[in-house]
């Protein structure tokens, strides 16, 4: 079994094709839209992620050393007078918030570099990280342009002091030292919804599965769903903003209205579309 499968997979790797064609057309491809005009930077998504995904609290000293384990982080940028921005005495147009989580790239730079295939692409378009296969070479994190892969530099399972550990979500692992981890689009929820749908001989309905960040978001800035389903909220939002896999802003010269993908020029084909923040500069 092993060798034949390896050869089969090898030929699959080598087959050239359109973006996203690495797998046969699958009935699901999970995608997201984050509306930066609605995002208020409140960090509810971050806390929800901690609660859902068993993320450890590392403490001040380790946070200072850059060991925080937040699968989704809120980046806040000021206007500092770059790229044609006007630098003002005060930050007059507010702060620029960017929720940064794994972009579940269709051409993920992290995937080909893992020596043991602990990170790979699932048929439904997720960028998977298998903890029990990971040996901790950390190449994937180096190669991630979004820097959304976090490494367990220490064992954190004892940081949940009794009885805090009773809160842990039993649907996914608590990671020990030496493995990489990252946002999974709440795969445990996706898998549960898919199982439910399969039991009932149907497809997963739009809105049936929500990521933890999406569900918590006070402004519903995050829309998540199946991009293969043309009626899903997320697919509609991709369509309205003329966003699609393979879209390349530089090549096409024209930008779809409001929709963009972060660091798109690297051709990583992220599955997360951001909608531009809007500011009324006339007042």
């Amino acid at each position: 079994m092993g060798i034949e499968r390896m050869i089969k997979q090898w030929f699959e790797f080598r087959r050239s094709g359109q973006v996203g064609d690495e797998y046969h057309r699958h009935e699901y491809r999970w995608g997201m839209t984050i509306d930066l005009d609605k995002c208020i930077g409140c960090n509810a998504c971050v806390t929800a992620c901690y609660a859902e995904n068993n993320l450890p609290v590392v403490g001040k000293e380790r946070f200072a050393r850059g060991l925080a384990m937040h699968w989704i982080r809120l980046e806040r940028y000021w206007y500092t007078g770059e790229a044609g921005e006007k630098k003002t005495r005060f930050s007059e147009r507010g702060a620029q918030y960017l929720p940064m989580l794994c972009q579940q790239c269709e051409h993920a730079p992290c995937e080909p570099v893992c020596p043991v295939t602990a990170t790979y692409h699932t048929p439904d378009g997720l960028n998977a990280q298998v903890y029990n296969r990971c040996i901790g070479s950390r190449y994937c994190s180096n190669n991630c342009p979004y820097k959304v892969r976090y490494f367990n530099f220490y064992s954190y399972y004892d940081t949940w002091q009794t009885p805090l550990e009773q809160q842990l979500n039993p649907d996914l692992s608590v990671r020990d030292k030496g493995v990489m981890e990252k946002c999974t689009f709440c795969v445990q929820r996706i898998r549960a919804a898919k199982n439910r749908a399969k039991n009932e001989n149907r497809k997963v309905r739009d809105g049936e599965v929500m990521t933890a960040c999406q569900q918590a978001c006070p402004t519903r800035a995050i829309v998540f769903g199946n991009l293969e389903d043309p009626d899903s909220q997320v697919a509609r939002s991709w369509k309205v903003h003329k966003m699609a896999f393979g879209h390349n802003e530089k090549k096409e010269g024209k930008k779809p209205v409001r929709g963009y993908r972060v660091l798109e020029e690297l051709n990583t084909e992220p599955s997360i579309q951001y909608l531009e923040r809007v500011r009324d500069t006339d007042v």
Partner: peptide, 15 residues
């Protein structure tokens, strides 16, 4: 015993 953190590696300095 204690993890790679003892090598003072961090995010983003994984290597």
């Amino acid at each position: 015993r204690f993890g790679m953190g003892e090598a003072r590696l961090n995010w983003p300095q994984m290597w």
